[in-house]
Computed example of a mutant assay.
Amino acid sequence: MSHSPLLNLPGPSRDLLDDVESALAAARGFVADFDPELVVVFSPDHYNGFFYRTMPPFCIGTAARGVGDYGTYAGPLDVPGDIANDCARAVLESGVDVAISAGMDVDHGTVQPLEKLFGDATFRPVIPIFINSVATPLGPLRRVRALGAAVGTFLGTLGKRVLVVGSGGLSHDPPVPTLATAPPAALARIVGGEPMTPEQRQARQVAVMDAAQAFAHGDSPLQPLNPEWDQAFLDLVDANRLDEVDAWSNGWIEQQAGHSAHEIRTWIAAFAALAAHGRYQTGHRFYRAAPELIAGFAVRTAVCNP
């Protein structure tokens, strides 16, 4: 499923919010019927928990807390540390290099899906797995697929009902600072992790809302959404053709769908975890190009074929 801070802020139209909420309600029903004992969330970060002082491509949280950005939950998550550590060992043994964090800070990219699916970010035990999708340089997509497969193989040994979530937007290019262009204040945050004051967080929220309004009205320098590219990606996911992303270059993804389209990495990892057990079948399907959210917004549910 996609996420967006703008779902928690004033601005998006009632029509859009109702449309998204209908899709999320279907996903909630799917999750409630499945009744998972454990949740694994593949998610990006937006310089709230991971910074250029040390930027791993992948990291498994053995303990984690929400930072509370954009009105999401602030506080500790229920992370089963022993299982998370075993997962990290299994992934490393499979040949995929992954970091661990015994004090992971996670933002709305991790917490919002938990709140939307369960109503409470701490309702179920959760293992957060960070996939760098913002801070260049980025590794090749084939390594993301290998990560997902390794995690999925491990999860199959637990004898538990496990819900795997991939949290990321499709085509979108929001105003995220970069190492090359960030002004000094933003540079201190994205490199050193300098905490934002409440005033700075409020100013950031206002800036995001203003950027979304300008984008929705066609008065923005941000790269347009690409619904055709989004649909092609979703078709690939629906058809169990994940191996085709191995040929996609990072530069091509940015050119076609914007810098933050790299968040599809979370989807690739999640579906690769399912694919580790054979073909999967997608169920609920939703997509909307949503300029008011500065994102191609999508939801999919899927199960492994029996």
Rank of each mutant, 00 (worst) to 15 (best):
G192D: 15
L179H: 05
E254R: 15
I190P: 01
Q256I: 04
V237Q: 10
T157R: 15
L222T: 04
L24N: 09
G103A: 15
D35E: 12
F154T: 04
N240K: 12
N240I: 11
D86Y: 00
R161S: 13
T153G: 14
V303Y: 05
R124T: 03
F233T: 09
D246N: 15
F130A: 02
N305V: 14
V126C: 13
S22H: 12
L114E: 06
L163N: 07
M1V: 12
D105R: 15
Y73W: 12
A232Y: 00
V237W: 08
G218A: 10
Y70L: 08
D120F: 09
I129N: 01
V20D: 03
D243H: 12
N48L: 11
P174L: 10
G11L: 08
G119P: 06
G11D: 07
Y73S: 06
D18L: 13
L6M: 13
G166R: 12
M104Q: 13
A26D: 14
Q281R: 15
G81L: 00
P227N: 04
F30Y: 14
R14P: 01
G11S: 08
W229H: 14
T282G: 03
F58W: 11
Q255I: 00
I131D: 00
H284G: 03
I268Q: 11
V162P: 07
V39Y: 03
R279Q: 13
G61V: 05
S260K: 05
R189F: 02
A302L: 06
R300W: 09
I190A: 03
P174R: 10
D173H: 13
G119K: 10
T72H: 09
G168W: 06
A275S: 14
S167P: 07
N132G: 05
V39R: 03
L24Y: 12
P12H: 06
L236G: 05
R265A: 08
A102D: 15
E263W: 04
L117D: 04
L92K: 14
L274Y: 01
I131E: 00
A239I: 00
A261D: 06
A149F: 03
V40M: 11
V144N: 09
A207P: 03
S171H: 10
S2I: 11
V303M: 12
A25F: 06
V164M: 02
Q205C: 14
E21S: 15
R265K: 14
I264L: 15
P76C: 02
